[in-house]
Write a protein that binds this DNA or RNA. Structure first.
Lengths: 90, 90
DNA sequence: GTATTATTGAACCTAAAGGTTAACTAAATT
DNA sequence: AATTTAGTTAACCTTTAGGTTCAATAATAC
């Protein structure tokens, strides 16, 4: 995905930096494709891959929901331990 | 994590909605703990869990990097296919 | 003090992830 | 026409994920 964020690329190009077989990378791409994160355009024997980052929006929204709560949570944690200290001073 | 976003809870509380053994949930929590997403405070026989969403920031940053590029990417895809059409009209 | 409750640990099982090699298809090159 | 290149498919293997049950530990409740 990092590679595809730079622009369209072929399977071989995407595979290049990895110390694993083309077959393995091909499988990974198929997974990303099924997940809707990658689009494929067949051009003769070459398959040109294109990133589709839209589905990551859902992930971001999910994660940022927690981020939004983060500081608030820290405060509560502090309060929680403060109470504990008070209640059981030994 | 959804449960913990609501506030601190015990292992049993977190496990309640799930149709799986306490042991299984306990394992899940251990994983989240190792990932730094959950903190544990031992209180007698009860373990109180607290969400620590900070590490999700990294995830959000990673994902939003692609989101940022998303529209730009769509444009490039369009251009890419436009060129193809021109170059091989059949 | 005995029983109950909260939780983990150990041993085990099954399914899925993630890789490999080898054989195949199809397009480009020579 | 023969070879090389791009990619997938099939069969296989090993590791990890994600559960289970049963036993252990430790604190609370009766």
């Amino acid at each position: 995905m990092d590679r595809l964020a730079l622009g369209p690329a072929r399977v071989t190009d995407v595979a290049a930096p990895f110390a694993m077989s083309l077959t393995a990378v091909s499988k990974h791409i198929k997974v990303l494709e099924r997940a809707g994160l990658v689009r494929r355009a067949r051009n003769g024997r070459e398959h040109t891959l294109e990133l589709d980052a839209a589905p990551l929006g859902e992930l971001t929204r999910w994660a940022s929901r927690f981020e939004r709560l983060w500081n608030e949570r820290l405060d509560r944690l502090e309060a929680f331990f403060a109470v504990r200290k008070k209640e059981e001073p030994r």
